[in-house]
Write a protein that binds this DNA or RNA. Structure first.
Length: 481
RNA sequence: CGGGGCGUAGCGUAGCCUGGUAACGCGCCUGCUUUGGGAGCAGGAGUUCGCUGGUUCAAAUCCAGCCGCCCCGACCA
């Protein structure tokens, strides 16, 4: 009889992708539900992933000349209302603090849904001269948006993110900054999360409330839906105007600066799960895996594993640590070997290192890859060189596999019928022409649930509109998370 | 916000229709035997049944209101 496995069961992806995702998040102990809808608890294993992402992203943000700061959580209502489009876009999802110290406040305070209002108001005080520019500030913070439908990591009421807010003298500089950060995001998710993304500009209907232009990176998930993984906005002079930011330029003229903002969030964790995971659970890219290798010591048939196996395992752990590998030794004695195999597979650890009496006799260990379970015997003597190499290979294989999936699930269509058929059956990205009319965009969304994820960068590629047949440009469609 | 489902031990559930002292599996604790793919046996601990109120001699069960979670839809920089 098959033993009961209630705790460990994960719904197969093909049965119910949504349920699979939730099972993985909960059972791999990335997150747990909190008492308030949409407010999740990020557990240590999930938070370790976030910390690894943060560390790398933070380095990239600083390398491109930005510094970190921290602005307040609470934003006065009047601040939020200064930019019309912005408040219209965000007020439906704002949470308000109206009571403080037991007394009704004179002015309600919004819990920040984003910090443009707060930060631009501050910048108005800081900027007097062209010599004060550019301002290149990033903050790591939590924000709150009262979402109607929430899912761990993908769309939560409270989430963690970084938001960059910059000011520039010219439109060109602001545009350059916007695109530079989009590039930082793209290389981060591809190099670190092994998640290939499409980058491009959003249509007006999809752009940020109050922005001049919004750019985004879009990844394709295992179920054929797209996930926006990061955005970068050229805010034009709208916010400078609304928040009264002015300075004297080199010609002694009183002018407004150009601003940008850009952000990535814990949502990327959800994207990474849905990009790489399989029916056995998570698969983590080595670069952000809390444990890159887990040593599973195998006890001898007769006798105590403390005699030979465990001491050797500790030695191997030390050896790999010295080589800069994040390695965990699973010396729990309450679980059997098979249980540990399944457990670490579910948690997505890239390599399992099996070490038993037979291996020790041969001065070797066996490394097992998480994604295909292939086993490689490796001499203990060469581990510190072999393992980093295998990790690098694993990382690039993950990216390759995801790239192939994206390519295999991108369809160029020439007729609207074909569009509808592909979107109903296979989904994925659809490349098609669009005449630039928001009404057409809306109709497509209503009829197929697909939206324009991005307009590709560079000069528009001419293509007949898939709906009207009129002259248009090539854009990328998908159903979105 | 509309439609549907659900809330009983840490987790998964039965019991509810037809009211009568709360049950099963996993997990947890102790001991022994095991251990190269999710161990076995024995003994134990743990639930005022989402909340509030009502009906009743008696409520997990019937009634009302509320709260929360999940799915579908609408909405979602």
């Amino acid at each position: 009889m098959e033993p009961e496995r209630t705790m460990k069961e994960i719904t197969p992806r093909s049965v119910d992708f949504s349920q699979w995702y939730l099972d993985v998040v909960l059972k791999a102990e990335l997150a747990d539900y909190g008492p308030v809808k949409g407010c999740m608890i990020i557990r240590p294993y999930g938070y370790a992933i976030w910390e690894a992402m943060q560390a790398d992203m933070d380095r990239r943000i600083k390398e491109t000349g930005h510094v970190n700061a921290y602005f307040p959580l609470l934003i006065p209502k009047s601040y939020l209302e200064k930019e019309k489009e912005h408040v219209e876009g965000f007020s439906p999802e704002c949470a308000w603090v109206t009571i403080g110290g037991g007394a009704e406040l004179e002015e309600p305070l919004a819990i920040r849904p984003t910090s443009e209002a707060m930060i631009c108001s501050t910048y108005a005080k800081w900027v007097q001269s062209w010599r004060d520019l550019p301002i290149l500030i990033n903050q790591w913070a939590n924000v709150l948006r009262w979402e109607k439908v929430t899912r761990p990591f993908l769309r939560t009421t409270e989430f963690l993110w970084q938001e960059g807010h910059t000011l520039h003298e010219t439109e060109e500089q602001a545009e350059e900054e916007t695109l530079k950060m989009l590039g930082v995001y793209k290389s981060f998710v591809e190099e670190i999360l092994a998640m290939p993304v499409l980058h491009g500009r959003k249509t007006d209907s999809e752009k940020f409330a109050g922005a001049l232009k919004t750019y985004a990176i879009e990844a394709l998930m295992g179920d054929g839906k797209a996930l926006q993984a990061g955005t970068s906005h050229n805010l034009g002079q709208h916010f400078a105007e609304a928040y009264g930011i002015e300075y004297l330029d080199r010609n002694q003229q009183r002018v407004r600066p150009w601003s940008t903002s850009w952000g990535t969030s814990t949502r990327m964790i959800g994207g990474m799960i849905m990009t790489h995971g399989d029916d056995n659970g998570l698969i983590l890219p080595p670069k952000i895996a809390p444990h890159q290798v887990v040593i599973v010591p195998i006890p001898p048939r007769k006798g105590d594993w403390n005699e030979a196996v465990l001491p050797k395992a500790r030695e191997v752990q030390k050896q790999l640590r010295a080589a800069g590998v994040r390695v965990h030794l699973d010396d729990r004695d309450q679980h059997q070997t098979g249980y540990k195999y399944a457990d670490w597979e579910m948690r997505g650890v890239p390599f399992r290192l099996e070490l038993g009496p037979k291996d020790i006799e041969k001065d070797q260990c066996v490394l097992v890859r998480r994604d295909n379970r292939s086993k490689t015997p490796v001499p203990l003597a060469g581990l510190e060189r072999a393992v980093p190499e295998m990790l690098a290979t694993f990382q690039s294989d993950l990216l390759e596999r995801a790239r192939k999936f994206q390519a295999d699930n991108t369809t160029r269509v020439s007729s609207y019928d074909e569009f509808k058929q592909v979107m109903a059956e296979k989904r994925g990205f659809i490349v098609a022409g669009w005449n630039g009319d928001p009404a057409v965009e809306k109709r497509i969304k209503e009829e197929t649930k697909a939206t324009i994820r991005v307009m590709p960068m560079g000069d528009p590629i001419e293509a007949k509109c898939v709906v009207t047949g009129e002259k248009g440009r090539e854009v990328w469609f998908a159903q979105a998370y």
